[in-house]
Lab assay of single mutants.
Amino acid sequence: MQFKLIINGKTLKGEITLEAVDAAEAEKKFKQYANDNGIDGEWTYDDATKTFTVTE
């Protein structure tokens, strides 16, 4: 399945997509990506659109 991450950071904004088996795997990958890029914020997930959002 394809999942999307919307980044609303203080210095980094944008979207990325990835393939994952389920939402838990996608969340783990997205949070690792955010951590690697210094993004720390409030996370939400919309199951209907398979979209994660992180807002700093």
Rank of each mutant, 00 (worst) to 15 (best):
A26I: 01
D46E: 13
K28R: 14
E19K: 07
G41N: 01
N35V: 10
N37P: 01
M1S: 07
T49Q: 06
T51V: 12
N8G: 02
K31S: 04
T55F: 05
Y33C: 02
E15S: 05
L12F: 04
A48Y: 10
W43R: 00
A24I: 08
K28Y: 09
N8W: 09
G14Y: 13
G9L: 14
K31E: 03
Y45I: 04
D47G: 11
I16R: 15
A34C: 04
A23E: 07
N37V: 08
E19T: 15
A23L: 05
F30L: 10
Y45L: 02
T11F: 15
I39F: 06
A24M: 12
N37K: 10
G9R: 06
D46G: 06
N35K: 11
I6N: 03
T17D: 09
A26K: 00
E42L: 11
G14P: 15
Y33I: 13
E56V: 07
D40R: 07
T11W: 07
Y45F: 08
T44W: 05
T55L: 04
T44P: 00
T44V: 11
F52W: 09
L5A: 07
L12G: 06
E19P: 11
D47T: 14
T51D: 03
Y33V: 15
Q2P: 14
T49E: 09
E25V: 07
I6R: 09
D40C: 03
G38F: 11
G38E: 12
A24Y: 14
L5N: 00
T17Q: 12
F52H: 08
A23W: 14
T11L: 08
F52S: 01
G41R: 01
T11H: 13
E27C: 04
F30P: 00
A20M: 06
D46N: 13
N37Y: 13
N8L: 07
G38R: 07
K29V: 10
E42Q: 11
T44L: 05
Y45G: 01
I39H: 14
Y33D: 02
Y45C: 02
L12I: 14
T11G: 07
K4R: 06
D22S: 04
G14L: 14
A34H: 01
E27V: 03
F52C: 01
T55W: 04
K10S: 14
L5I: 01
D46V: 13
N8V: 03
G9N: 15
D47R: 13
D47Y: 09
E25Y: 14
I6E: 04
Q2H: 15
L18E: 12
T17Y: 10
A34F: 02
F3S: 00
T17L: 13
D36L: 09
G41K: 01
K28C: 05
L5K: 00
D46K: 06
D36G: 06
I39E: 02
V54P: 01
A23C: 03
I6W: 08
T44N: 12
E27R: 05
D40K: 06
G9C: 03
G41S: 01
F52G: 00
E27S: 10
L18G: 13
T51E: 12
L18Q: 09
G9P: 05
E42Y: 11
A34M: 02
E25W: 10
K13M: 14
A24K: 04
G38Y: 06
D36R: 13
T49C: 05
L5W: 04
T44E: 15
K28G: 09
E19A: 13
A24T: 12
G41A: 02
K4I: 15
T11R: 03
L12K: 05
W43A: 01
K31A: 04
F52L: 02
A24E: 15
T17P: 15
T49A: 14
E25I: 05
E42D: 14
Q32C: 04
T17W: 06
E27M: 15
D47M: 12
E15V: 04
D40A: 06
K29P: 03
F52K: 00
D47W: 14
E27H: 11
K10C: 02
G14T: 13
A48P: 10
A34N: 07
I39Q: 03
G41E: 01
F30W: 02
D36Q: 08
K4S: 06
K31P: 00
K28W: 09
V54C: 03
Y45N: 01
T53E: 14
D40E: 03
F3I: 01
Y33W: 12
A48H: 11
Y45E: 01
Q2T: 13
T11M: 04
T55K: 09
E15L: 02
K31Q: 03
F30H: 02
D36T: 08
D46R: 13
K4Q: 06
K50W: 07
Q32L: 05
T51P: 00
T49L: 10
E19Q: 10
K29Y: 08
D36N: 14
Y33N: 03
A26W: 00
T11P: 06
F52A: 02
I39K: 01
T55R: 06
E15K: 04
N35C: 03
N37F: 05
L5P: 00
G9M: 11
A23M: 12
G14N: 06
E25T: 05
Q32F: 13
W43L: 05
T11E: 08
A24F: 11
E56C: 02
V21T: 10
T51M: 09
K13F: 07
E42V: 05
E15G: 03
K29H: 07
D36F: 08
G41H: 01
V21N: 10
Q32E: 12
A34Q: 02
N35F: 11
K50P: 01
D47C: 03
I39T: 05
Y33H: 10
K4C: 03
G14C: 04
W43S: 01
A48R: 09
E42G: 04
K29E: 09
T53M: 15
A24R: 11
I16E: 14
K29D: 15
E56T: 02
G9F: 10
K31D: 02
D46I: 13
E27N: 10
T53I: 08
E42T: 10
I6Q: 10
D40V: 13
W43K: 00
I7M: 12
E25P: 02
T51G: 09
